[in-house]
Amino acid sequence: MKKLVSLLLTAALAVSLLAGCGSSSESADTAKTEETTETGSASVYRTLDEIKESGKITIGVFSDKNPFGYVDENGEYQGYDVYFADRLAKDLGVEVEYVSTEPASRVEYLKTGKVDVILANFTVTDERAESVDFCLPYMKVALGVVSPDSALITAPEDLNGKTLIVAKGTTAEAYFSENYPDVNLLKFDQYADAYNALLDGRGDALSTDNTEVLAWALQNEGYSVGIESLGNQDTIAPAVAKGNQTLLDWINDEIVSLADEQFFHADYKETLEPVYGTEVDIDSLVVEGGKIE
């Protein structure tokens, strides 16, 4: 009983401490969000009108995932996701504030309304769709297979009886062990080890996300991506807080209308082509107007 009472006291102390710090050190800007969040859990997010009114949209991006979202030497956010985010803010007529997010905290940022949109190479999954609302996709990823030019692998059947290098716990590992049981898998914990193994000739090919192998092949003379798109195609899409219909609709309309000017092709040319090279089939990565053939 005594313990229970003291536990309650501790909790009360912690709460008052939190409340005290919150009211004293918050800027006027976040105080507005505070009001909206206090009205109930249904409205943690800001609607389209509220964002327009405040004149600023906060967008969660990666700050260390070149070429999707990174910070250049002048401290400016750059990359494929950021290029799109800049356009969203421009067409919305508001300023943009970027928030640096980590893979593990992306969902929480939306759930608590700390950002309006997440544009951080966010792969659409059923599990995530339960916590956030995904807009139309603007990119797709699948598996790619890289191999030496001297013995280029161009179809997954070529790998039967041969050794394929994969990283543990990746979709590549799952896909090949399920669909191509005759392929010998050589598994590594780290990507760096896996790539070194391919360079040492310990395997005939290596498979992981196509964006990764494409970038790697460009850096390593004598290796090419023989299979650019394989397996289940995952899509990458902007995400907003669950139930934020006005913002969701607006972004979806925006993505559809941007297809007229082939916006994401331009985005690709600006941000991804310097990394992936000109050999790559753009349509195997970029999605226009949210339509996947």
Binding site: V15, L17, L18, A19, C21, G22, S25, E26, S27, T30, T33, E34, T37, E38, S41, V44, S105, E108, K111, T112, G113, K114
Partner: peptide, 23 residues
Amino acid sequence: FLVYFGATKAFGINLSGETSAVI
């Protein structure tokens, strides 16, 4: 995480990252 995200979820208090860190 408890202070930064949890405080928002449980009490609707929106703390900045810096404030949460100091707390």
